[in-house]
């Protein structure tokens, strides 16, 4: 299992040809209290960089972009019921959606944890 990061503050956990995607703890700290999450529909085919989800804090709405292309296999319904999970466990329970990876070569452009730490430093 590998965890990768985007410069837009998303994380991807890669298991075989499935990527689980969420936003980073750094992102949630910048967003502030999250009050609403809109998730993509299961079965939707996302292209890389397409707006996939919306996360709304008390302050503003922010788009979550698909970090890679792929089909949505599953979404985290618990987030809709409890958006504050994004604040309390961004890297764990607050995963947004799972994608069936369309093109593994797209993973090459992503950062590892050390790279992401340097990016947010």
């Amino acid at each position: 299992m590998t965890t990768l990061f985007t410069s837009d503050h998303e994380w991807l956990r890669i298991e075989g040809d499935v990527a689980t995607i969420g936003v980073t703890d750094y992102a949630q700290s910048q967003l502030g209290d999250v009050v609403f999450v809109e998730l993509p529909k299961v079965g939707r085919k996302l292209k890389k960089a397409e707006a996939a989800a919306v996360v709304e804090s008390v302050k503003a709405a922010s788009d979550v972009y698909a970090p890679i292309s792929g089909e949505v296999l599953e979404v985290n319904e618990a987030l809709a019921a409890e958006p504050a999970l994004v604040n309390s466990d961004a890297g764990g329970k607050a995963w947004f959606f799972k994608l069936k990876i369309a093109d593994k070569s797209e993973l090459g452009g992503l950062m590892d944890e050390a790279g992401y730490k340097a990016h947010t430093a």
Partner: peptide, 8 residues
Amino acid sequence: VQYATGVL
């Protein structure tokens, strides 16, 4: 705009 406490 807020303190560490957070808006909520």
